[in-house]
């Protein structure tokens, strides 16, 4: 499972959010269909799709020469579960605390 951090980062870009929302609403689409709506170049759309794919938010399916992309909104579950975000926050702070204790005098 992807961490909330990866998901946050992948959705921090408004264009990527728009692409992801479009896939959530419109179902499976090719990069060309997405490019028509996005107002940016096809390579740029492909790059955004790559980032979303790494975050587990988008899946792809080859069909001949075409690749069809679809949203995997379930990957967002950790982001909507805000307690998991706080848990991540405290674990990280405890790491800092541990390193601080190692540096402190008795």
């Amino acid at each position: 499972m992807q961490t909330p951090d990866t998901i946050f980062r992948s959705l921090s870009d408004p264009t990527r959010r728009a692409i992801f929302e479009r896939l959530c609403r419109g179902g499976e689409q090719t990069v060309w269909m997405l490019t028509e709506d996005a107002g940016i170049s096809q390579p740029a759309v492909s790059k955004h799709l790559g980032v979303l794919k790494l975050a587990g938010l988008v899946g792809d399916r080859r069909d001949g020469r075409e690749t069809h992309y679809s949203a995997k909104p379930k990957a967002l579950a950790p982001l909507l579960d805000w307690m998991s975000l706080y848990a991540g926050f405290w674990h990280e702070r405890f790491d800092h605390l541990e390193s601080l204790l190692n540096r402190m005098d008795q």
Binding site: M83, W90, F94, L97, L101, M104, Q106
Partner: peptide
């Protein structure tokens, strides 16, 4: 309401952790 619990053991005296 919900409660989040995080626990960790540190190899340091309680007094030192209290200062931190």
């Amino acid at each position: 309401t919900r409660t989040l619990v995080i626990e960790r053991e540190f190899p340091h005296p309680p007094e030192k952790l209290w200062r931190a």
